Amino acid sequence: MNKTNAPGRRVLVTGGASGLGAALVSAFAARGDRVLATDLAEQAPEALPRGAEYLRLDVTSDDDWTAALARVEEAWGGLDVLVNNAGVAAGGRIDHLTLDDWRWITEINLFGVVRGCRTFTPMLKRQGSGYIVNTASAAGLIHPPTMSSYNAVKAAVVALSETLQHELAPYGVTTSVVCPSFFRTNLASSLRGGDPAVEASAGKLINGSKLTADEIAAEVLKGMDRRRPVILTDRAGRTALRAKRWLRPLYDRTMRRTAEGVRRRVERGGPAAKTGTTSTEKHA
């Protein structure tokens, strides 16, 4: 039976220890779903909502994904919803990002999602049902300057998800991609490294948001209920995407003003000699 919208679903969430992942774990559990929250961080059982369990999972580890599949098969005999949410956020000008920076974010944000989909797709096909939800970002649809590595991997997650929407539909498997804008999380306090001109603007965007992770999670579940292929969780993301599609000259001018602002800050403050990325352990 297809249970992807019914209560009591079997749900696995990566990156489930904090931020949007933790909010999603709570939202699913509140609906009466059984949830396996996974993350790199240690999680005390008492920190989890009723109906949730915890498994340490590094999304870059094939062995950890194999262990997660074995845990799901043994405990539940199947899976109804796979949420590939774990990821990192980064920013930096193209001449300040190293190839190691690119490899790092690609391994986590793109191949982490690919590994999750590859691990559980055979099970979902055998069941003839299931729901894959991949967390990307509004940056996967609109592409601000100074975020080339983040934009690129998030756009790849959007493309992967659209591909699977069509590829897995004949097997009864639904796929959605979640594209939130900035929302309040621990991101700003966790920025590390790098490119001061970008770090300042990123912190302003994050701290200035009025949205919470719980609000974003609620929108994700609404989008899943409606089987939306692309789940836009907030007005800012919807407005930016409409501008890109229908008001392209305005969109381009806005992006170029943003890039010009970075250039002027660099010239005033002289941080161009520094290199690196800004990063955190959960999505923004």
Rank of each mutant, 00 (worst) to 15 (best):
T4K: 00
P7Y: 02
G8Y: 01
L12F: 01
V13Q: 02
T14W: 02
T14A: 14
G16P: 03
A17G: 07
L20V: 06
A22C: 01
A23G: 11
A23M: 03
S26V: 05
R31H: 06
D33E: 06
L36D: 00
L36I: 12
D39M: 05
E42Q: 09
A44H: 12
A47K: 04
L48K: 05
R50S: 15
L55H: 04
L57V: 11
D58K: 14
T60A: 13
D62N: 10
D63T: 05
D64N: 07
A67K: 14
L69T: 09
L69I: 10
A75M: 07
W76Y: 14
L79A: 10
V81K: 04
L82C: 13
L82R: 05
V83I: 15
N84E: 10
G87T: 01
A89Q: 00
A90S: 14
G92N: 10
R93S: 13
R93D: 06
L97G: 03
W102R: 13
R103E: 14
T106W: 09
T106Y: 05
I108G: 09
L110Q: 15
F111I: 12
F111Q: 14
G112S: 10
V113S: 10
R115H: 05
C117P: 00
L124I: 02
K125R: 13
G128F: 00
G128Q: 03
G130V: 00
Y131L: 08
A136P: 08
A138W: 00
A139C: 14
G140S: 11
I142R: 06
I142T: 12
H143F: 10
M147I: 01
S148H: 04
Y150D: 01
N151Q: 11
A155E: 06
A156T: 11
V157L: 08
L160F: 07
L168Y: 05
G172R: 03
F182L: 02
T185F: 01
N186E: 13
L187D: 10
A188T: 10
P196Y: 07
V198H: 05
E199R: 10
S201W: 05
G203Q: 14
K204L: 10
L205T: 15
I206D: 08
I206Q: 13
G208R: 04
S209I: 03
L211E: 09
T212I: 01
A213F: 03
A213H: 04
D214T: 14
V220N: 04
L221W: 02
K222W: 03
R226I: 00
R227D: 05
R228C: 06
L232I: 07
D234P: 06
R238V: 13
T239K: 04
L241P: 02
L241V: 11
R245F: 13
W246Y: 15
W246G: 11
L247W: 11
L247A: 13
P249Y: 06
L250P: 12
D252A: 08
T254M: 13
R256G: 12
R257D: 15
R257Y: 08
V262D: 00
R265V: 02
G269A: 02
T275V: 00
G276H: 01
T277R: 08
S279C: 11
S279L: 03
K282R: 14
H283P: 02
